[in-house]
């Protein structure tokens, strides 16, 4: 059970860590200053959640590692985030579509985790949920505004959805560890989150006048750690270079 729990916590913390880093890349580059600040806030929210998830992960592991060690000293094959969150930002529309797909899954998951049998997980979920409810409200309204906007913004958002939809399926991939955690009342089965995610996605993407691709194919390999995309390694070189170049540096 300890191994399953550790794996579960890594998956949560790695999703929020890697997406946080991706969003932070917009800092100083967003189309307008209001979006720039909003994206930076969301990146910081996710980083705060990462500290809680990875902090609990090292506690569960009990091997003397710190949350910082997990974030800064692991290599790509040890990360357990879904591939969607490591994908490059692309244009602003692609970033917002990726954000919406993640938020819609994230809010579904956290709203179940608040009643986890593990009180530490329930507490992290309760704190995160307040932030993520705002994230999904914001990303949904931006997706709707751009999707149901000008001809060009509509075309870009449809392209972003076509490009990313098949990556969202990985969030709902379910393995033996997930079953063990569900049986222990610790976390829901990822596959059981799909219906709620689909309902929200259909409502929002419908309002955005976008068409969900007709495919059941889903990319996988991130949450199992079997094969990430080529983008993760590049991201890590940016994120980890300081600890790699100056081991143990603090400020």
């Amino acid at each position: 059970m300890g191994d399953h729990l550790f794996e579960f916590l890594l998956r949560q913390g790695d999703n929020t860590l890697i997406l946080s880093h991706r969003i932070s890349e917009w800092c100083g580059h967003a189309p307008i200053i209001e979006e720039d600040i909003a994206l930076a806030n969301i990146a910081l929210d996710l980083l705060g959640q990462t500290q809680m998830w990875l902090g609990l992960a090292v506690e569960v592991e009990g091997a003397g590692r710190s949350a910082d060690d997990l974030a800064m000293l692991r290599d790509a094959w040890d990360f357990r985030n879904a591939i969607l969150v490591e994908r490059p930002n692309g244009n602003f529309g692609q970033t917002m579509m990726r954000q919406f797909l993640f938020d819609a899954y994230h809010v579904e998951l956290l709203s179940k985790l608040v009643s986890s049998a593990d009180e530490r997980i329930a507490a992290i979920a309760a704190k995160s949920l307040k932030e993520v409810e705002y994230h999904v409200e914001r990303s949904a309204s931006t997706v709707i505004a751009l999707g149901d906007g000008s001809e060009e913004s509509h075309a870009r958002m449809q392209a972003a959805l076509d490009d990313q939809w098949t990556f969202a399926g990985e969030f709902f991939e379910t393995d033996a560890g997930d079953h063990a955690l569900r049986d222990a009342g610790i976390s829901p089965l990822p596959s059981d989150l799909r219906a709620g995610f689909n309902a929200r996605a259909m409502a929002v993407l419908g309002d955005a006048t976008l068409v969900i691709p007709e495919t059941t194919f889903a990319h996988s390999g991130g949450r199992s750690g079997k094969h990430h995309s080529e983008h993760l390694g590049h991201l890590l070189t940016q994120m980890q270079w300081l600890q790699r170049a100056y081991p143990g540096a603090t400020w």
């Binding site: 307008i32 209001e34 600040i37 909003a38 806030n41 705002y134 309204s141 505004a145």
Partner: peptide, 20 residues
């Protein structure tokens, strides 16, 4: 003050810019 496409987004932007 700030820029926003509509009142709802103005409230969201205000939340992010002025109440963080």
């Amino acid at each position: 003050s700030l820029h926003a496409p509509d009142a709802e987004m103005a409230i969201k932007n205000a939340r992010d810019v002025y109440t963080r």
